[in-house]
Amino acid sequence: MTKECIFCNPKKDSHQNIIFENESCYFLQHDKQQDVLEGSGVIVPKAHRITTFDLTKQEWMDTYDLLQKARAYLSDRHKPDGFTLGWNVGEASNQTILHSHFHVIPRYNDEPYAGKGLRHWLKQPENKRKK
């Protein structure tokens, strides 16, 4: 745990809500993310783990358990048409908070980017590496 890390100290941010927790992880929702990404949240380990590759086996199992709870909760509360799930690992992937966090993003058929998932942006021709 580090003092400055927002995911190590979720109670320090009044806009951060702990929706569920278990032995090793939290499912968090941030008030300021709800305008565009309605219902979105993250699953984070309580211990400071910089990347997903640093998670323990127990943290993986606890992440799975919270994902199932989050899906039921979000399905009941927000009625999404689908979900986008994912981790960013490293600067090239846009990991801006150096504490592993698993994005749980409800998706809706009436949103402007409906039908466009994680890979859509990555497989655009302009994203091809120059050799």
Rank of each mutant, 00 (worst) to 15 (best):
residue 1 M to L: 14
residue 1 M to H: 14
residue 2 T to P: 00
residue 2 T to E: 15
residue 2 T to C: 08
residue 4 E to L: 15
residue 6 I to F: 07
residue 6 I to R: 09
residue 7 F to R: 10
residue 8 C to R: 04
residue 9 N to E: 06
residue 10 P to L: 01
residue 12 K to V: 00
residue 12 K to P: 00
residue 12 K to S: 09
residue 12 K to H: 01
residue 13 D to S: 05
residue 14 S to F: 05
residue 15 H to P: 00
residue 15 H to E: 15
residue 16 Q to D: 07
residue 18 I to K: 03
residue 18 I to V: 15
residue 18 I to C: 04
residue 18 I to Q: 06
residue 19 I to G: 04
residue 20 F to N: 02
residue 22 N to S: 03
residue 24 S to F: 01
residue 25 C to E: 02
residue 26 Y to F: 15
residue 27 F to G: 01
residue 27 F to D: 00
residue 28 L to M: 03
residue 28 L to F: 00
residue 28 L to W: 00
residue 29 Q to M: 13
residue 29 Q to N: 04
residue 31 D to A: 12
residue 35 D to P: 00
residue 36 V to A: 09
residue 39 G to S: 02
residue 42 V to W: 14
residue 42 V to E: 02
residue 43 I to F: 03
residue 44 V to D: 02
residue 45 P to H: 06
residue 46 K to G: 06
residue 46 K to R: 07
residue 47 A to Y: 02
residue 48 H to S: 03
residue 50 I to W: 03
residue 50 I to E: 15
residue 51 T to N: 12
residue 51 T to H: 14
residue 52 T to C: 08
residue 52 T to Y: 15
residue 53 F to H: 07
residue 54 D to Q: 07
residue 54 D to L: 01
residue 54 D to C: 05
residue 57 K to R: 10
residue 57 K to E: 14
residue 58 Q to R: 14
residue 59 E to F: 12
residue 60 W to L: 12
residue 61 M to T: 14
residue 62 D to A: 02
residue 62 D to C: 04
residue 63 T to N: 06
residue 63 T to E: 08
residue 64 Y to T: 09
residue 64 Y to L: 15
residue 64 Y to R: 14
residue 65 D to G: 08
residue 66 L to Q: 02
residue 66 L to C: 00
residue 66 L to S: 03
residue 67 L to C: 05
residue 68 Q to F: 09
residue 69 K to P: 07
residue 69 K to V: 08
residue 70 A to Q: 09
residue 70 A to M: 11
residue 72 A to T: 06
residue 72 A to V: 11
residue 75 S to I: 02
residue 79 K to G: 08
residue 79 K to R: 15
residue 82 G to W: 04
residue 83 F to A: 05
residue 83 F to D: 05
residue 84 T to D: 11
residue 86 G to W: 02
residue 88 N to C: 05
residue 88 N to A: 10
residue 89 V to P: 00
residue 91 E to Y: 11
residue 91 E to K: 15
residue 91 E to C: 05
residue 92 A to C: 03
residue 92 A to F: 04
residue 93 S to M: 13
residue 94 N to M: 08
residue 94 N to R: 13
residue 95 Q to E: 10
residue 96 T to L: 12
residue 97 I to K: 12
residue 98 L to T: 10
residue 99 H to G: 09
residue 101 H to E: 05
residue 102 F to S: 07
residue 102 F to I: 07
residue 103 H to A: 13
residue 104 V to R: 09
residue 104 V to S: 07
residue 104 V to L: 11
residue 104 V to T: 10
residue 106 P to T: 06
residue 107 R to N: 06
residue 107 R to A: 08
residue 108 Y to I: 11
residue 110 D to F: 14
residue 110 D to H: 11
residue 111 E to P: 13
residue 112 P to C: 07
residue 113 Y to H: 11
residue 114 A to S: 13
residue 114 A to W: 15
residue 115 G to C: 11
residue 116 K to A: 01
residue 116 K to L: 09
residue 119 R to I: 13
residue 120 H to V: 01
residue 120 H to I: 03
residue 121 W to G: 13
residue 122 L to V: 10
residue 122 L to D: 01
residue 123 K to R: 15
residue 123 K to V: 12
residue 125 P to R: 12
residue 125 P to I: 13
residue 125 P to W: 10
residue 126 E to H: 10
residue 126 E to W: 07
residue 126 E to K: 12
residue 126 E to L: 10
residue 128 K to Q: 09
residue 129 R to C: 00
residue 130 K to I: 13
residue 131 K to T: 03
residue 131 K to R: 11
